[in-house]
Design a protein around this nucleic acid. Sequence first.
RNA 1: CGGGAUGUAGCGCAGUUCGGUAGCGCGUUCGGUUCGGGACCGAGAGGUCGCAGGUUCAAAUCCUGUCAUCCCGACCA
Length: 507
Amino acid sequence: MAKKGKTAINPTREENYPAWYQQIIKAADMAENSDVRGCMVIKPWGYSIWENIQKSLDEMFKETGHVNAYFPLFIPKSFFEKEAEHVEGFAKECAVVTHSRLEDDGKGGLKPAGKLTEELIIRPTSETIIGASFSKWINSYRDLPLLINQWANVVRWELRTRLFLRTTEFLWQEGHTAHETKEEAITETFKILDIYARFAEEFLAIPVIKGKKTESEKFPGAVSTYTFEAMMQDKKALQAGTSHFLGQNFAKASDIKYQGKDGKEEFVWTSSWGVSTRLIGALIMAHADDNGLVLPPKIAPAQIAIIPIYRNDEQQKEVLNFIDKLRNKIKPLRYFENKIRIELDDRDPTGGEKVWHWIKKGIPIRLEIGPRDIQHNSVFMGRRDKNPNEKESVNVDEFINNLTEILDEIQNNIFQKALKFREKNIVKIDDKAEFYKFFTPQNKKNPEIHGGFAFSQWCENPDCEEQIKTDLKVSIRCIPLDSTKEEGKCIYCGNKSNKRVIFAKSY
RNA sequence: CGGGAUGUAGCGCAGUUCGGUAGCGCGUUCGGUUCGGGACCGAGAGGUCGCAGGUUCAAAUCCUGUCAUCCCGACCA
C-alpha cells in the first residue's frame, strides 16, 4: 500500500516556506537552476504557463492599441548615462560587455580580445535605447501617441536569486509609450495598471491591490510608479508588476521632441510598464498547497489530465477508444476562446502514482477512465480545487455539457480562496505597539509565518517609513488607489495623517 | 556583497567525530504478477563523494583554497 506521508510536498508551507516553494517547482517540473549562477532553465511545464501569460496579455495590449517591436539587447553605456536617477538605480546590477571576440591564450584556453571602443550594457530595462529610437520616430504631434511593447529578456545582476521571483536573467514585457500631454501619459499609466490588475485577478486568480509607490520605492527615473501587490501564503507582499509615469525625464534625456499644432517644439511625456516571469512565482505562492502546484484553468498548460485504467491489452484498446471519443467531443468546445487542452497519461499503468503526478503539476481536472466508467458511460473526476480524495463519477454527456462551467468554477474557487486568505490577513492597525507586535515573530530563531498586510496611517514623512523599515523590515507596499481620505495619526510618529497605506514584509 | 548552513547515484539521505577505497529508501532498466488512492517479487544499471591543491602507504572522512545552493542581512521586477 501507499507509503507516502500526509502530504505530497515536503516540507509543508508551515514547516519551511522557502523550501516548500523550491519543492513545488521541482515536483511540478517547472524550472531548475542552470549552470550559470542566478539563471534558471524554464522547463516545458513552466514555460507553457509563461506562453499563456504572454498570449493573454499580448491580446489585451493589442486591444488597447499597442504594437510589438524589438530593440537590441545591448545598450551603449553612453545612452545609459543620460538619465541620472536611472543610472544610480541600475548601475550596481549591470552586466557589461567589454570585448567582441576570444583568442587563444597560449595555455589551451581562450582570452577576450577585440576591446570595444564603447562598452555595452546588457539591458536591465530599455528606456534609454527605446528612447533613442523614439527621438528619431517622433517629429510631429501626428506621430503621437506612440504605443510600443516588447517581449524580451533582461539582465539584472542580483546578489540573491530565487527561481522565478528574482533571477539574473528574466523574461518580461516592457511597454514604452510617448504622448503629447501629461494627462494622456498619466491616463496610459493607469490604463495599463488596470489591465495588469484585471489579468492578475481574472487569469491568474490572484487578488491584487493597485496603488502608488512611495518616493523611496519608485522606479529610478520615474515621476511616479504604480504597482499591483499580491499577498503570498506566507503573508508577505509581492510586487507583481509596475506601471510608471515618467514625465518628461526620459524625453529630455533622449531628446524626444515633437512639433505641436502651434508649431512649437515640445518634449513628449512618456510611460513605461512591465510584468515578468515573476508572475509565475506569484502564481505558485498564491495558490499552491502542500500537495503541489494549483493552476487556474485559464493559465494552465492543460486543463485536463486523463489517466486510463486497464488490466490487459483488450481493455486498453477499449479504454483508449473511449477516451478518443471523449476527446473528440471536447475538441469543439472553447474555454475563453481557447481550445481545452488535454494531457493523456498513457504511461505504463501503475496505480495511483499518475494521479499524484498530476496533482503535483496542478492540473485543474483529472479524469480516471477505466472499464467500469465505460460501462456507465461516465468518467471519474478529481478537481484540484478540492481534496485529492474527493472524486466523483460523472456522466460523460453531463461532463461535456458542464465542462466550461466546471472550469469556471475551479477558476473562481481558486480566486475566492486567495481572496479570503488576503482578507483574513489584512488588518487595520492604529496602535504602534500592536503594529510592532503584528510584524514580530514569536519564534525569533526560526520565525513562523506571521504578520500580513497592515492598513495603517502614514504621515508621508519618509523618515517614518525608513524607521519602520529599519526596525521591522516592513515597507510601505503601496498607497492604495482606492484609499479614501481619513483623519488619523501616523502609526510611527503619531503626527496628523490623512490616509492609510499598506505596510508589509515583501519579496 | 557581509554572516550562517549545506554539497555523497535522478530525488531524499546515512557514512565524516576515530582515514582503509561507498551504502540505504524512492526513482530508473529488464522479466513476471498486478492495476479504480503513491502496487509486489526477482534480477540489473547508475557515484573520479561539488571542484582544485595539500597531508598520508591510504582521504567522502584531516588541512587550505575555490565554486555552487539554501537561509539571514544590504539591494531589487
